[in-house]
Structure formats: structure tokens, C-alpha cells
Design a protein around this nucleic acid. Structure first.
Lengths: 215, 215
DNA sequence: ACTTACTTGCTGACCAGTAAGTAAGATTGG
DNA sequence: CCAATCTTACTTACTGGTCAGCAAGTAAGT
């Protein structure tokens, strides 16, 4: 998507990647609205105009950076795409573990996904699609799991899928604020396990515990 | 905390509130970095200098706005403070329901809490303290619940408390992006229920389900 | 009641700083 | 050579904040 232009010199691709990495750093540490092209340019020893030469506009740089991150993420993954079925849940826990070693990337997604809900934010379509896709994948994993465990699909699958993505995001936020108090992978595992088990075996309602209070 | 100065005219307090409400709207819709004093001033029909007259600086306006929101929130609450013990969990679900009727407030917290993790953001101490306090309160509720149910306190209470706050935040984000696809209160209830039950009755580990795959 | 003295709430002009983007030229690798 | 890369110099547009000043209100003295 990002290169129909004949990119003659090989050094150019390298420079573009450098700029994109710098953009991850800057947008992660300062946000999109507050991070500047000059900040990014400085990290790769060119001027802000040099950055504009490669990406045309700040907005376009942001968009290319987001897809770049996703692409290199998938490339890193143990060959090909995301596992489905119950292994997806373990994959998500492993992702959390990997994320706890790269605060920068976590911060970009955390900051930008929230910034994206603001008026006509350029990253909004990206996160829109991202969450829709992810919820679909997690829901599919739940359906496979339910069949495997001989459980007729409960109506809670949609909620569970959204909840799993939600805890992951929310824990990342708290972890960024208090890295020493939150153990990202461990807590993520706890939460996903709780939600998965709750789909298969709902357990008592919350109000039950309040009634018990009166015993 | 905000007024040791003799605020002589009563109209002044009203104007300050107006400005704070406008700040909620603007910072919610554009973020702190991107929202301007002029934006806020326009909503209350004064100039940006007028806003500075009342609050001194943009940063101070942000801080006063955050505490203002908390104060009026507590004031709305059915007399006095937050319930403890197992009722807290139901209170959190009711909060989610209330939030689903006021997207503006949800958006301020979502946008600003994420923006706060960036370099030396003025709202960072606020959210720092906020999460620490909330995790403490939820943990306390879990301890009460465990005693009530005759369960020896498991080591998962800390994770569970963080996870509950995390789902709530994460679901709000998804709800802001897709209001018609996410049912905020219902999904929050599902997730909290899952986590609470998991503290009392852990259930199988995630890896169990993968082993079953090979049967 | 009325002057005097002072405060409060605000405006309008302005400033220094900073942002993205543009235009035109220098440089250089292939 | 010549197109791709990048710089220099600039424009345009804002932004938060300062400042002087003013109208309206408050308080006190007389």
C-alpha cells in the first residue's frame, strides 16, 4: 500500500523505516497532537522537511506508521498468522508478555487509540477496523472452544470477546502508569482465564453475594 | 481546595462552573493538547483572556476541571460515599449504566487518562493517584467478599482489582468507537461477574483447553 | 446620599514561540 | 545526466500567556 513509487535507492527504504521507528517513539511518548515532525526528524538526523519529503504530511506518516507496526508484528510472529481456537487465548497472553518488554509500542497504541475517539482523528478508521476485526477473531475462538467443550454457544460470547480486548487495553494503561505494581502478563492471564471460564461455566450472579451479606 | 480567595460575586462561581463544563466538553472532544483556551472561551462567550483571568493557566484549568468532575460526581451519588464490600461490584455496574448516558464525561476520562501516560503530562499525578485509590478500594471489597463466602483470601485479589478497572476502561473505549455494537452496562456486568467468580472459584487453567484439543 | 478607594471580571492588542507545509536550490548516487 | 534525496529559507496559521485599561461592583468614610 505504501510504495507504488519506484524507490530507486535501497538506502531509502532503510531511511523510511528509521523515520517510522522514530515516529513510534515520538507519537508514543508525546501523542500525535503533541509530537512534532521536528522531533521525529531530529532522531534520524534530518530536518522536518526531509520527513515531509518521504511521507507528504504528518497525517500520512501516522497512518503509515500504524500499518508498519502491524506488518512487522505479524512478520515477527512464528511464521504466518494468528492461531485460532483455544490457542488464541494463550497467544494473547504471550502477546501481553512480549508487550511487557516493549513499553514504547504499548504506549503508542494506548495513547493513539484513546486520542482516536476525538473529533475526526485521522487514526480513527484504523482503530475502528482494528477492534471490529479483533472482536471477530476472539468470538470465533470462543465458538470453537464451546464446540470442543460440548457447550452450546452461550449469548455471552460477544461480551466476552469485547471484555478480553478491554482488559488487555486497560491493563496496559495501568501498567504504563505503574510498571512496578502491575505484572502485565500474569494479570492478563488471570483476567482472560476468568472470562473464558465464565463463558463455559457462568457461575452465580453478582447480586447473589449481596443477599448472602444478610445471612 | 480551589478557593481560599474571597469570591465576592455569586455570578463568578457560576461562570467558573460554566467554564469548567466547557473545558470538559472541549478536552473530551479534542484532547488536552489539541483543545485550546479559545475553544473553551467561545463556548461561554468570553475571550481566552477571560478564561485565563479565572484559572491562571491552561494547565491549572485542566487540574481544576478534573477535581470538579469528581466532586460533582460524588455529590450526585445517593448521599455520601462509595459502598464497600460486595455492593461495590454492583455499584460499579450501576456506574457503567450511568456512564452510558453521558458519553461526554466518559470521553474526557478515556482521552485524558491515556494522554496522561505521555511525558510529564500535567494530569499524570491525578490519574496516578486515582488508579492507586481505586485498586485499593476494589481489593478491600474482595477481602470482605472472601471472608463472607468463607474463602481464604487468594493471591489473585490484586490482579482481580486491576482487571476490573481495566475492563471498565477498555469497554468504554470500545463503546466510544462503536456505541451501537457495545452494550456498556451489560458487558461490564458480565466481565465483573466473571472476575469476581474467578477469585472465589478459579476454574481450570487456559492450557487445559488446548490439551483437550488433541482428544 | 455621595464621594473616594479599591477589587473583580473582562477585553483587545500584542508577543514570542512553535507548528505544518511550500518552494527552490544544492547534492549525490546510479 | 537526472531523478531522488534532503536542506535552507520562508509563509501561514495558531497558541498560551502578558499587559494595560476599563466598566461595574463593593466598601468605607463622611
Amino acid at each position: 500500500m505504501n510504495s507504488n513509487i519506484p524507490r530507486s535507492r535501497p538506502a531509502t527504504q532503510r531511511k523510511r523505516s528509521e523515520i517510522l521507528e522514530a515516529a513510534i517513539d515520538i507519537f508514543g511518548n508525546k501523542g500525535y497532537a503533541n509530537g512534532t515532525l521536528a522531533d521525529i526528524a531530529e532522531q534520524v538526523d534530518i530536518t522536518h522537511s526531509g520527513v515531509l519529503h518521504h511521507f507528504g504530511s504528518k497525517q500520512n506518516l501516522l497512518l503509515e506508521m500504524l500499518t508498519y507496526r502491524d506488518e512487522t508484528d505479524v512478520a515477527d510472529l512464528d511464521e504466518r498468522h494468528i492461531p485460532d481456537g483455544p490457542e488464541l487465548f494463550l497467544h494473547l497472553v504471550r502477546t501481553a508478555l512480549a508487550n511487557s518488554r516493549r513499553a514504547g509500542v504499548v504506549q503508542v497504541y494506548t495513547v493513539l487509540s484513546a486520542e482516536a475517539v476525538t473529533d475526526e482523528h485521522p487514526a480513527r478508521p484504523f482503530f475502528d477496523k482494528r477492534y471490529t476485526t479483533l472482536r471477530g477473531e476472539v468470538s470465533a475462538a470462543f465458538r470453537v472452544l464451546c464446540e470442543q467443550e460440548g457447550v452450546t454457544e452461550p449469548g455471552t460470547i460477544g461480551s466476552a470477546a469485547a471484555s478480553i480486548l478491554a482488559v488487555m487495553d486497560g491493563l496496559q494503561l495501568q501498567w504504563l502508569l505503574h510498571p512496578q505494581e502491575i505484572e502485565l502478563a500474569e494479570t492478563t492471564e488471570f483476567a482472560i482465564r476468568a472470562i473464558v471460564n465464565s463463558v463455559l461455566t457462568p457461575g452465580p450472579e453478582l447480586s447473589e453475594y449481596v443477599r448472602n451479606h444478610k445471612d
